[in-house]
Simulated scan of single mutants.
Amino acid sequence: MPESKSRKTGQIGQKSKSPARAERGQRRADLRAEKPEPGPLPTWYKAIMFGLMIVGLLWIVVYYLTMGVAPIPQVGGWNIGIGFGVACVGFLMTTRWR
């Protein structure tokens, strides 16, 4: 029975990299190392982020407590959507929080 072709590997189970591919990987690693680490967020960003979450929650609470009379009676049930929308903007801001 003929033998199968053996793989060219540096170690068992790992394929050897071509020189061009290894060089590209090294360049990517160098570029990542050059990027400065982002600093902490300013205080105003955190205040707006938490403020929007609280305003959205309060909007919904006021709508339920006043039985639809406030905050904007003309939009009716959309007040819940407005409250959730405002709160969601605050929650989306948390993705940039460091």
Rank of each mutant, 00 (worst) to 15 (best):
T43S: 13
K17L: 12
A87G: 07
A20Q: 14
V61E: 04
V61L: 13
E34G: 06
F91Y: 12
I54S: 06
E3Y: 08
G85W: 03
R27L: 11
I48S: 05
A70E: 05
G39Y: 02
F84G: 00
G90W: 00
F50E: 03
I80N: 06
K35W: 10
E37Y: 10
W78K: 14
T94S: 09
Y64C: 15
G76K: 07
F84P: 03
S6P: 12
P42I: 08
R27Y: 04
S6N: 13
T95F: 15
R96C: 01
A33R: 11
T9C: 05
K35T: 13
W97V: 03
P38T: 02
G85M: 00
G68Q: 06
K5Q: 09
L57F: 15
L31V: 08
M1F: 12
M53V: 12
K46D: 09
K35L: 11
T95H: 10
M93Y: 03
R24F: 14
V69E: 15
E23T: 08
E3D: 14
I12V: 12
F50R: 09
G83K: 03
W78Y: 15
T9S: 06
Q74L: 07
Q26W: 10
V61G: 05
L52A: 06
I12P: 12
Q11H: 14
Q74N: 11
I12A: 12
A87R: 03
K5Y: 09
M49D: 07
L31F: 14
K15W: 14
A29Y: 02
E34V: 07
G81A: 11
K46L: 13
Q14A: 09
L41F: 09
Y45F: 09
Q11M: 12
I54E: 03
P42T: 11
P71W: 01
P38D: 02
W97S: 05
R24S: 13
P40D: 07
Y63T: 05
I72V: 14
W59R: 02
E34M: 12
F84A: 10
R98H: 11
T95V: 15
I80S: 01
L52T: 02
E34T: 05
E23D: 05
R28L: 08
K46P: 03
G81M: 08
L41C: 13
P42W: 05
F84R: 00
R32M: 08
Q11D: 14
R24K: 15
L52D: 02
G10L: 15
K35G: 05
G56E: 00
M93H: 01
F84T: 02
G68D: 03
G83T: 00
G68Y: 00
A22P: 02
Y45K: 02
G90S: 00
A29T: 02
L41Y: 11
Q14H: 14
G90Y: 01
V89R: 01
Y64D: 04
M53I: 15
L52P: 05
F84I: 15
I12L: 15
V89T: 07
I60D: 04
W44T: 13
T9L: 06
A22D: 04
P40I: 10
F84N: 02
L92I: 12
P73W: 04
G81E: 03
Q26S: 14
W97M: 11
R27N: 09
G13R: 04
F91R: 04
G83M: 00
G10S: 06
A20D: 10
